[in-house]
Amino acid sequence: MRVRWAVVAVGCLAVAGMGFVVLKNNVVYLDPVSEAVADKADGRTRIGGAVVPGTIDGREGAVAFEMTEGGVVMDVVHEGSPPDLFEACAPVVVEGRWAGNTFESDRLLIRHGNEYEPPDGESYDDCPDAGDGSG
């Protein structure tokens, strides 16, 4: 009986360890642009910021634009069509990997208006007014 329990315990530990590794490999951090640019993390990352007006290039299929937060600007290339609400100053979250100084995104989400604001009241008020030569 003792032996059987030991086997069960070892099995559980092995499964838990495996689970932890899988978990660790699939964690995607969500950072604001300023931190993300400072870190340039290796794996898959999510970055939140606002679309800089006048930088949107392309629409259907792929889009390149600049994203800003905390006074830092970064280049994003997104594979796929952005959603309808993608526009200058839109609060967006991109998910993907860094390739040099450009962030290659394959998932682009719009943070919705007031009712979807992140709980900690994070804001992207560095975004210039949409009136300034928006694209």
């Binding site: 689970g19 899988v22 978990l23 490999n25 699939n26 964690v27 995607v28 951090y29 969500l30 950072d31 898959r44 999510r46």
Partner: peptide, 24 residues
């Protein structure tokens, strides 16, 4: 709950990707 714990103790925001749930 991992993202909640990470935010509470590490002050980092993260999500656990779908592959974790699928692989397990």
């Amino acid at each position: 709950v991992f993202p909640l714990l990470a935010e509470a103790f590490q002050d980092r925001r993260l999500t656990v990707g779908e592959p974790y749930f699928e692989r397990m």
